[in-house]
Nucleic acid binder design. Structure first.
Length: 418
RNA sequence: CGGGGCGUAGCUCAGCCUGGUAGAGCACCUGGUUUGGGACCAGGGGGUCGUAGGUUCAAAUCCUAUCGCCCCGACCA
């Protein structure tokens, strides 16, 4: 891809309405733009990151045995009356009427829709278990949207719902999803901690939140010495000590990027979602639900991976793994070499951003720092005269001169580790 | 919803107190010179000062209302 042909409107200055670093950097790097409070457009670079995160989520959810579906965003009032949440949910539930004065809401979550689907389609124990997930736009009319993608009103969420024959099977699935979540956030390059949490409005009995630890986090979490488990404010032991080791728990700020719930039969009771067991007896389906904030995961990655010059994307979710920067105009040997290197990498299946803009070296290098693409190939005049180009990792900073002839091979080794 | 703040060019902001022909830097367009860390010269385009009403000879500036946005608090992926 050529920088000059993509819509990447980078900003030199920090927009005045952005407070947290991820919001600032997403705006400055041309990933997102705000349309209204808590409502954002994703530009090409931002969408690329979102899609990388989604790809990881899909792979791990599929590996955990879940199937992808897509439910409606708009749902009728009646469904929400059945679960009693039309009254309970409050003003975050955005409600409206259609031309026939029938009442609807925008989905803030989809237990109702999925349970309705499953109760209509599942009759027999032979059809269970089922785990169904979707990646979809949600709308929650938050009292105070803030921090860019971190707390939008409209946001992309992966939500998964599991349906099991009994409690034991549901608990097993719960832990399988828990492990899938660990893999997802690990693959996204995040440092995170699973946190024992209360179940809040969605209801249920067992729950973990996955928190990315960052100073800007909205939640306080209490983490064990080993850092392998935490407790939310409403679940932390009174003495604030690790129940296993007795050592004190440390307080951190966390960004909740995912949560897993064991729901039990709350929704299957409300919706009479039942199946017939081998004896022909009617039984309630046992449910779980599992959410990941996709945009928030991307924002959290920035909160955790940035420096004073810009983003330091983890390789797995970077908009591009590598950028090639010729320091010279279109007629120069630098530009020629850069184009050839780009071409060779692309033929090898690597996504490359070629900075073909006519701007000065300073502009290109500063923008490259801002965008945070993990690997950078700089083709400079002195280097090219010696038959060399430079390979630099955004995070490390060390510049490695590499022979022109072997640069493709070397970049490939960095960008797709076996 | 309670408390605080802000709406002036694409972005960052000055001007408002003390009313008198709308500004700067960056960005953008044209031509030229430039290319290792946000270049230079010359020319140029762009704003009914959030909106509506009021006061006044005269309003970005004073008054009233309204809308939007940001921050702090209660709610949440």
């Amino acid at each position: 891809m050529k920088f000059s042909e993509m819509l990447i409107p980078t900003l030199r200055e920090v927009p005045s309405d952005a407070e947290v670093i991820s919001h600032q950097l997403m705006l400055r790097s041309g990933m997102i733009r705000k349309l209204a409070a808590g409502i954002y457009s994703y530009l090409p670079l931002g969408l690329r990151v979102i899609q990388k995160v989604e790809k990881i989520i899909r792979e791990e959810m599929n590996a955990a045995g879940a199937q992808e579906v897509l439910l409606p965003i708009v749902m009728p009032k009646e469904l929400w009356i059945e679960s009693k949440r039309w009254e309970v949910y409050g003003k975050e539930l955005l409600r409206f009427k259609d031309r026939h004065e029938r009442e609807f809401c925008f989905g803030p979550t989809h237990e109702e829709a999925i349970t309705d689907l499953v109760r209509n389609e599942v009759r027999s124990y032979r059809q269970l278990p089922q785990s169904l997930y979707q990646i979809q736009t949600k709308f929650r009319d938050e009292i105070r949207p803030r921090f860019g993608l971190m707390r939008g009103r409209e946001f992309i969420m992966k939500d998964c719902y599991s349906f099991e024959r009994d409690e034991d099977a549901a608990i097993k699935t719960y832990w399988r999803m828990y492990e899938a979540y660990r893999k997802i956030f690990t693959r996204c390059g995040l440092t995170f901690v699973p946190v024992q949490a209360g179940t809040g409005e969605i209801g249920g009995t067992l729950s973990h939140e996955f928190h990315v630890l960052a100073k800007s986090g909205e939640d306080e979490v209490f983490v064990t010495e080993a850092g392998d488990l935490g407790y939310s404010v409403d679940k932390v032991p009174a003495d604030k000590k690790d129940p296993k080791t007795g050592s004190p728990l440390k307080s951190y700020r966390g960004i909740e990027v995912g949560q897993v719930f064991h729901l039990g039969t709350k929704y299957s009771e409300a919706f009479h979602a039942v199946y017939l067991d081998p004896e022909g007896k009617e039984k309630l389906i046992v449910m779980g639900c599992y959410g990941i904030g996709v945009g928030r995961t991307a924002a959290a990655a920035i909160e955790q991976n940035h420096d004073d010059k810009g983003i330091l994307w983890p390789l797995a979710i970077a908009p591009f793994p590598v950028t090639v920067i010729p320091l010279g105009g279109p007629e120069t040997p630098m530009f020629q070499a850069a184009a050839e290197i780009t071409d060779a990498l692309q033929k090898a299946g690597v996504e490359v951003l070629l900075d073909d803009r006519p701007d000065t070296a300073g502009v290109k290098l500063n923008d490259a720092d801002l965008l945070g693409i993990p690997w950078r190939v700089v083709v400079g005049k002195k280097g090219i005269e010696k038959g060399e180009v430079e390979v630099k990792e955004r995070k490390g900073g060390a510049v490695t001169p590499v022979a022109r002839a072997s640069v493709v091979e070397q970049v490939l080794a960095k960008v797709r580790p076996a």
